[in-house]
Design a protein around this nucleic acid. Structure first.
Length: 224
DNA sequence: CCCTGATTCGC
DNA sequence: GCGAATCAGG
């Protein structure tokens, strides 16, 4: 079975809908679950909750050691028949002594220990598992006030002032503090005022009368 | 064992 | 580019 545009589309839709690869393969027919997964990845679809792969930043408690190469790899250096080293080191990190009987079963957290918690969208702290009350937002709410425009462009036509009735001819260069736009009333039907239309639109001359273009002002367009 | 998705790699 | 084989967690 070939991956026609139509079948690819079905795959995308079903995948994004949350169907499992098996279901999709079943629905499409003629392909295996693996084929569906392989295709999905090749299409760039990806990162659906996988049972085996979504761990990151969690307590690294590897049950098994580092994953060995699955395919035959160059064999490790031949092991000499040396005497086996001693048994692995004992306790790497001794646990703190258990709380003495009588203290609260739910031991309060050591304040000196930094608390790791995730940051939600917008920078808000997320509720931790043991938290009894909502964490305090990082910054107290304040009224948001528009930033004061730079004095350099006071009274000038900025990007935000542009509309279809004023001349959009740029004066200065983007990024410069006094960059602004002409702002005069437009020549009706054009984006510029009459004067700047004269710059923007030139009569088409007969080919033989064309002059080579004059050098650009200020040494030409800026290159960063 | 079943399921899942991820990954590798010969074709 | 394709997908079987394989891995690894639930």
């Amino acid at each position: 079975m070939a991956w026609t545009d139509e079948r690819i589309d079905q795959l995308k839709t079903m995948w994004e809908k949350g169907m499992t690869a098996s279901q999709i393969a079943d629905e499409l027919g003629g392909v295996s679950r693996n084929a569906v997964i392989g295709k999905a990845h090749r299409l760039g679809l990806q990162s659906r909750p996988s049972p085996v792969k979504d761990k990151e930043g969690k307590a690294p408690a590897p049950k098994k050691a580092a994953p060995p190469p699955r395919r035959a790899e160059p064999a490790p250096a031949p092991v000499q028949h040396t005497p086996k080293p001693a048994a692995p080191a004992p306790q790497a990190a001794p646990k703190p002594a258990p709380a003495p009987a009588g203290t609260a079963p739910l031991a309060p957290r050591d304040p000196s220990e930094p608390v790791l918690r995730s940051i939600g969208p917008g920078g808000f702290l997320r509720q931790g598992p043991g938290d009894q009350q909502a964490p305090i937002p990082p910054a107290p709410p304040r009224r948001l006030v528009p930033a004061k425009p730079s004095a350099d462009i006071a009274g000038k036509t900025t990007l935000l002032d542009l509309n279809d009735r004023i001349c959009k001819w740029p004066l200065g260069h983007p990024g410069e503090p006094d960059f602004h736009f002409c702002g005069d009333p437009v020549n009706p039907g054009f984006p510029y005022c009459v004067a700047h239309c004269g710059h923007a639109y030139q009569a088409q001359l007969p080919r033989r009368d064309r002059r080579p273009p004059p050098p650009m002002p200020f040494g030409g367009p800026r290159v960063r």
